[in-house]
Simulated assay, not measured.
Amino acid sequence: MSDARLREEICRYGRSLFERGLTPGSSGNISLRLEDGGWLVTPTNASLGFLDPARISRLDAEGRLLSGDKPTKEIPLHTALYDTRSSARAIVHLHSTHAVALTMLPEIDPRAALPPMTPYYLMRAGETALVPYYRPGDPAVADAIRGLAGKYSSVLLANHGPVVAGDSLEAAVFATEELEETAKLYLLLRNLNPRFLSPEQVADLVKAFDLDLPSHHDHDHD
């Protein structure tokens, strides 16, 4: 896909996420990793609903700005996830309401922020890690992401929001949306003793769809 088409794709998905209230104001950012190791990434202080393709930041493989506006301050976050997930080609970071709310609950397991509620949550987002709070743009968040050793494609930042990697921008967006909807389900059903998928049902999904879930392997994956 050409550079121009990739820029248009970022704008199209960004606008869709914004118009559905998943990333208010100038929150959230999107990046795409290019064949030469460089990136396209949304600029700092830019609304995902009103992106200009020509102003999207173009970075080289070392993270130096080549063209476009100044990039998002969350570059360390994106870098760490790309470095530890070799299959990642796109990353979406939002401040979506239900996912943020989930991170503030006391019972959340950092190794599995959500239980196995639906098959599509596991198929799209996998299992989700929760990392502690860091101020936005803090380079220390990169160490927290690297500490997950590439096991998770979806991560929640405490009091901040989700960060989701995919092998395409479409996959990253779909996984982010599934994560948000599953967080919403969890909040709706909290303290109501809902019926989650059984271990046997999860194992069947893992086998049928070749899912790479941290709880279902004994060694690190990219």
Rank of each mutant, 00 (worst) to 15 (best):
52 D>E: 14
148 L>T: 05
125 A>C: 10
24 P>A: 02
112 A>S: 13
130 L>A: 01
2 S>M: 05
202 V>K: 07
76 P>G: 12
19 E>D: 01
114 L>W: 00
155 V>W: 04
166 G>Y: 02
205 L>H: 08
179 L>E: 09
64 R>M: 10
142 A>Q: 02
25 G>W: 03
135 R>N: 13
145 I>G: 02
137 G>I: 02
209 F>T: 11
140 A>H: 11
52 D>R: 10
182 T>I: 06
20 R>A: 00
119 P>I: 04
221 H>G: 13
190 R>I: 12
77 L>G: 12
168 S>H: 04
171 A>W: 08
47 S>R: 00
185 L>E: 11
219 H>L: 11
45 N>W: 03
110 P>V: 13
216 H>I: 06
84 T>A: 15
107 E>W: 10
177 E>N: 04
158 A>Y: 05
126 G>H: 08
70 K>G: 14
131 V>Y: 05
156 L>M: 06
70 K>I: 11
149 A>C: 02
133 Y>Q: 11
192 L>R: 12
116 P>A: 13
44 T>N: 10
176 T>I: 07
125 A>D: 07
74 E>G: 10
37 G>C: 06
160 H>E: 04
161 G>N: 00
159 N>G: 06
94 L>W: 09
89 R>M: 13
206 V>T: 01
211 L>R: 07
191 N>P: 08
154 S>W: 00
208 A>W: 15
134 Y>L: 14
214 P>D: 15
87 S>G: 15
156 L>C: 05
83 D>A: 15
104 M>R: 14
137 G>N: 06
149 A>Q: 09
161 G>T: 04
208 A>I: 14
7 R>V: 07
121 Y>D: 11
111 R>C: 13
47 S>N: 05
117 M>N: 09
84 T>F: 06
17 L>K: 03
23 T>H: 05
4 A>T: 07
163 V>Y: 01
222 D>G: 15
102 L>G: 14
123 M>T: 14
36 D>L: 05
193 N>M: 07
91 I>G: 12
194 P>A: 03
197 L>I: 06
1 M>L: 12
67 S>R: 06
66 L>A: 01
208 A>N: 15
132 P>D: 12
201 Q>M: 11
92 V>W: 03
64 R>K: 15
168 S>W: 05
5 R>V: 13
28 G>S: 01
100 V>F: 10
91 I>R: 03
176 T>P: 11
134 Y>C: 12
69 D>C: 07
92 V>E: 08
116 P>F: 07
203 A>H: 01
89 R>S: 13
115 P>G: 08
71 P>F: 01
130 L>P: 04
99 A>H: 13
151 K>M: 11
38 G>P: 10
204 D>V: 04
104 M>V: 15
201 Q>H: 10
36 D>C: 06
3 D>L: 09
169 L>H: 02
212 D>G: 12
99 A>R: 14
188 L>R: 09
140 A>R: 15
53 P>V: 00
195 R>C: 10
69 D>Y: 08
107 E>H: 13
204 D>I: 01
214 P>N: 14
190 R>F: 06
102 L>F: 08
116 P>V: 01
141 V>G: 02
119 P>Y: 04
133 Y>L: 13
151 K>F: 08
73 K>R: 15
